[in-house]
Amino acid sequence: MSCSSERIQRYFDGDLTRDERMQLYEHLRECGDCKSHYDEVKKSIALVQSASHITAPSKFTESVMDALPKRKRRSVAWKRWSRNHPMLVAASVFLVLMSSMVWVNWSGMSGDDVMVRGATGDVHVNYETNTVIIPEGETVAGDLTVRNGNVDVQGEVEGDLTVINGEQYMASAGNVAGNVEEINEILSWIWYETKSLFSGLTTGDDS
């Protein structure tokens, strides 16, 4: 059998049949050149393989994680957090909507106009002093709500009296059968809105 470097290559590729391998071994016993070629390839492979165990530097994973695109990470962290805390998310969404609604109502009515709601009786409004007057002997049948004005009760209110952004005066003859409430701060306004929302929800009364 003649020398063939191609056959030695095929041997190291694992492409020789069993018979071809036997023939090669036989040839290597007789041919010094091929034997040293074979030994040298074998040694090179062994050397390369012996060098093949290196490990990544310490803290490698941490530095990769730190280098990941930040925008994606943050939105993802938020997504993950919100997935784990659905109630908190629902509550905060509710709060945001609620407070913006309250704020719109509050600032929308902080103009100068006096507003009276729920008055069924003969209620007199003095626009110069911003005062709502329930004259003596007059009776308001239900609840009365006054915004942006003072209330002077000389007559009678059968329900609750709510004064928003104003004060109420009561004459000695005046009478309010229900609760009297003055609301002058945004916080008590929010409380009022929330209360009325929930009482609206629970009674199913949307007026």
């Binding site: 994606k72 993802v76 993950r80």
Partner: peptide
């Protein structure tokens, strides 16, 4: 969209990937 899961992948493959890179470019 969970980047924390990626840390496990890095941990599992870092040595092999680093080895390829190191042997190819030749310096740490």
């Amino acid at each position: 969209g969970d980047p924390e899961a990626f840390a496990q992948i890095v941990e599992a493959y870092k040595d092999k990937v680093y080895q390829i890179a190191y042997r190819m470019v030749g310096n740490a």
